[in-house]
Design a protein around this nucleic acid. Structure first.
Lengths: 132, 132
DNA sequence: CTCTTTGCAAAGAGTTTGCAGGGTG
DNA sequence: CACCCTGCAAACTCTTTGCAAAGAG
């Protein structure tokens, strides 16, 4: 039996905040951004709703940065650049990654339902700081 | 000041176990494999040494699967296929990913020191099980 | 003998979960 | 008014850390 989904201000606010954010926030980042507007918001609710979004396929996990899972409401195939210095996560326009899915299916015999390409290093801002 | 590194049976055993493993094990997986041979091995030691390997660049993190970080002693550029069903992590022969590094540096203005490409889905074995 | 490495166990950090109360349809 | 959703806090899991003892050079 599948549970009926009811609307909720909090849930919509969480999704909207994630959709608007360009920095692929973690649960805690979303929480502290929404807290001022929803003073009685709880961190558990953020986690619970993120799990719902993931289950519905409306949100995707970008990976774990510094121990925290990072999320993205842009589910179209694209890559990320993760700065190991400041933890920033940037979008990267990836060239035809979709084609590679079939290649991997042929190689492994499995079924590919998604991919994630991420580059790591130091972002432009951190390079400047480090260069000092 | 940099600390002098001394040899240690445990450390070498951990690295060797990781180098031999083809399943990109987690700290706990390595621990339980080595435990029979080194009964007084401690999980903390495995974590500590993995951190050393990562720092030395001798080992690479493949990402977090089901909450556990997975490691790979093969630091050459290659992609992975992660089964979201059983958690298996398989190697994939990735086509010229190196070339993409420069492209990303041009796009972001940062410096790329590594990349990680992973595909997710269901592996061949899980497909069979699911098909039943 | 000096300094690194380890075992053990406690501490931390991030995430999940149980329960009673509030919200939605 | 039935059932979903939330706040709160405790519980859990994975990882890190402090300390005294063991090991390497």
């Amino acid at each position: 039996m599948e549970t009926v989904r009811k609307r909720s201000k909090k849930r919509e606010a969480i999704f909207e905040a994630l959709r608007m954010a360009k920095d692929h926030p973690s649960a805690e980042m979303l929480y502290s951004r929404l807290k001022p507007m929803y003073p009685d918001l709880s961190l558990g609710t953020v986690y619970r709703n993120l799990a719902v979004f993931l289950g519905d396929g409306d949100v995707v996990s970008v990976g774990t940065v510094a121990g925290q899972e990072r999320y993205d409401a842009d589910t179209s195939p694209h890559a990320h650049f993760i700065c190991r210095c400041c933890g920033r996560v940037l979008d990267v326009n990836s060239p035809a990654l979709e084609r590679m899915d079939e290649a991997v299916e042929r190689e492994t015999g499995g079924r590919v339902t998604g991919h994630s390409l991420s580059f790591s290093g130091e972002c432009a801002e951190c390079l400047v700081k480090t260069a000092v």
